[in-house]
Design a binder for these strands. Structure first.
Lengths: 149, 149
DNA sequence: TGACGAACAAGAATAATTATCGTTTACTAG
DNA sequence: CTAGTAAACGATAATTATTCTTGTTCGTCA
């Protein structure tokens, strides 16, 4: 029996946890199910509000801890690598960024070093594009050397 | 006389302020000069620490206010749009994001709707790229209607 | 010179996130 | 099935990041 394209995620939660080396807990299951019903880009607070409807006793800290765990194991993705605080740079020439997913270091990369790039064309939903910012996400040289377990 | 490629920003600060409709104050000038010496992606806190060496009496709030003002007027650029809190999404199919620079709303955009894309090739500095994330930054349809002054 | 408004400093207030710690729960071997 | 062990949980305190409030200062223009 193959997975149905209807559902966002058909595999049972136990299997998903096993795949990612996570213990199966009721809180995690509800957390995951709730997020399946939130197709957008929810904040921890928003997820917490919804989960509380099903587990009124859940702690916000649990939501945070599991979201981080999910991100770490690849079940969830951070929408944008942000670094806990606002980062700015002088608005000079065109460039983009390489972000190390391990140490979060940001390095500039010239636009030409990225190869072919998308044009700012007509976009869905009447969105008026002004510029685009590309984050190349990976592991920096330093963290590659510092092999982790 | 053309700008020298040597310096990050050659135009005198007064002129830059005039161009962006900003009053010239000592704090702003030092703030700007300090940021020229920080080629990376400093956080407000880091900028504050450095500025304090030259203006010990400066307030952190002043740094924040002026950074925001600079961003608003295009003197500085946010490295990635700041949403105030962590945003996550289920790690499903490949897509990117459109971010409204006004209301900060995030909308998904299919990879195919972006046109030609860069390849994950060899990058400078031995960085091992795993994926890339593109933020198209602009104004969403709703904010286009809600014309601001 | 004197009033006016923008900019400022200080610190309180708020929002977001993380850490601590005692208790409970899930997984494993027997 | 049951006990042992490590991981997960909940409550809440602590931290960090950011914004707001208020009173003061400074530069400009009449």
């Amino acid at each position: 029996m193959q997975t149905s394209p209807r559902s966002v995620e058909t595999r049972p939660f136990r299997e998903l946890c096993a795949d990612h080396g996570l213990a199966v807990t009721h809180q995690r299951q509800v957390l995951y199910e709730v997020m399946q019903t939130m197709p957008g880009h929810p904040s921890p607070e928003e997820v917490y509000e919804r989960v509380k409807k099903r587990i009124p006793a859940i702690s916000l800290a649990t939501v945070y801890k599991n979201i981080h765990l999910f991100v770490e194991r690849g079940v969830l993705k951070e929408v944008s690598m942000h670094h806990g605080s606002l980062r700015v740079e002088l608005n000079s020439h065109l460039h983009h960024h390489m972000v190390c997913s391990h140490c979060k270091a940001i390095t500039d990369i010239e636009e030409k070093d990225l190869g072919v790039l998308p044009a700012l064309q007509q976009l869905p939903g009447g969105f008026r594009a002004e510029r685009y910012a590309i984050d190349v996400i990976g592991i920096c040289a330093t963290c590659q050397k510092t092999k982790r377990s």
